[in-house]
Amino acid sequence: MELGRKLNAKKIEAWLERSLVPVEPSPAFVSELRGRLVVLRGSRMPSPWIVVLVLGALLIIIVTWFGLGMRLVLALLGLIGLVERERRSPEVLAEARAGQK
């Protein structure tokens, strides 16, 4: 190849000038990385203790809401039971009286 012949420092410098030109990173990459670094402060993995704390807090919230839900369901069932008993009580009394006769 001709390139290897008659090479001197000046030619190599000129060649380097032509080949080593600045390249631009894509604007999307630059702004996305800036967002990660500046807004999310590195978007690094949270420490295990943070993960445990968050999971624990989530568990407590779920259990609390579940307990509240269960209480509401039981209260509703109790209310339905009361209403049903009230509705049935005159019939039961009438039946009891008829039985006595």
Partner: peptide
């Protein structure tokens, strides 16, 4: 620059 010249010559060879 000298090393680069030698390198290019070698790869040309």
């Amino acid at each position: 620059l000298n090393a680069l010249r030698d390198q290019i010559k070698d790869s040309g060879e």
